[in-house]
Design a protein around this nucleic acid. Structure first.
Lengths: 206, 206
DNA sequence: TAGATTGTTAATCGATTAACAATC
DNA sequence: TAGATTGTTAATCGATTAACAATC
């Protein structure tokens, strides 16, 4: 597996977005410059990114086959090999994520959710919600690699610890806290405050 | 207003998080190295970041006064001058954002939300929800600077256009689409696919 | 052929990290 | 004083952009 810059990784889903739109419009080939224009990026950058993830070469004065390029990017991003996930904390945000139809296209499937307050078995968008006490056992038995944390800040570290001891490999953390995990566990933080900081700063600069 | 790297801007809310925790624990001063350790960052980087946003100098062998540093960062991020916002699209994600209590601490207040399907006036978490047809007029009259878009992809560009013609200054976009806006309008994209790409890629590399 | 586009090699730019003197 | 910490200047690193020959 090649190393790839995170910046590139962030751009790939955007390329995919453009390519699929173009395919819908009936196009069969596409140049890097075309993608770049649609996304306000530098064409050289796009070309380099594509070279990193595609096994196929582009054709001068013609570009690349859209279908093949889509497949290459999707393969690279793992969209065609589903990873299982669990979600912890079925509040408003948790529900929003459970209702989000996009995950399956991105190669992630939320198998089960856990909550503190569960009186009876129920489900959200066909994902069953269990009491948090059975989480460790279930995650361990099912060998689930991804945990999504949408609990309040106070509960986040404890939930994280349980997931880790159940053998989770990666955590997608929506709680505003720096989680402490063993070195080999991946943590990706989703942070509202970061985004707002950027927006309001740009706003103030004008 | 100084220019500041986006990377620094993203770290500032994290520093704030650590500083507030320390204050709660009763500490009065704090060194850059201390913050760096808590966040797994390079201490030199933290020191440089702090120097960029703080008007006060640190004291050798002692660090900085936590209270003053918190104030400096919050001032810099605009947490103490509230910006008004509107939210468009009261689906699951929209509701989650409306219910999120954190915005006011980050200097953003959602004044009103708009939806396609509104039979009668109602509200979510004390934010009134109106029919989208009155949006342009209301946003214009209230001179609201920030628009949050949480509508489906198909509707996003039209909503964006309306917001722009109502004089919006910045858009926080949760729809998976590259919005077309005039040069002077700020767009910040929030993209699930980006995060997932990073997580699954790291996962596959192991 | 001419022109758009490719991939690659070199130059530039910006952010991170290292080195170090100053100081409480 | 000694040691932790500061701020600053220089070195390193990585990503972006520019230049250019190759080619369909």
């Amino acid at each position: 597996m090649k190393e790839i810059p995170e910046k590139t990784l962030r751009r790939l889903p955007q390329y995919l977005m453009v390519l699929k739109d173009l395919r819908t419009e009936g196009y069969e080939t596409c140049s890097a410059s075309h993608i770049a224009e649609a996304l306000d990026l530098n064409p050289i950058q796009v070309r380099k990114d594509l070279a990193l993830v595609s096994n196929h070469e582009g054709v001068p004065n013609q570009g690349r086959l859209i279908n093949r390029l889509i497949k290459d990017i999707e393969d690279f991003l793992g969209y065609n090999t589903t990873s299982q996930a669990v979600l912890v904390g079925v509040g408003m945000l948790g529900r929003a994520l459970l209702s989000y139809p996009g995950f399956k296209h991105y190669g992630v499937e939320i198998m089960v959710a856990f909550e503190q307050q569960v009186d009876q078995v129920y489900s959200v968008n066909q994902v069953p919600v269990y009491h948090i006490t059975v989480m460790e056992n279930l995650v361990q038995r099912m060998k689930i690699p991804i945990g999504i944390i949408t609990v309040p800040k106070k509960a986040a570290q404890a939930v994280c610890d349980t997931l880790v001891s159940a053998g989770i490999k990666a955590i997608w953390n929506f709680a505003p806290i720096k989680l402490k995990v063993p070195e080999d566990v991946i943590v990706h933080d989703e942070n509202m405050a970061e985004s707002l900081a950027i927006i309001t700063n740009k706003l103030m600069q004008k």
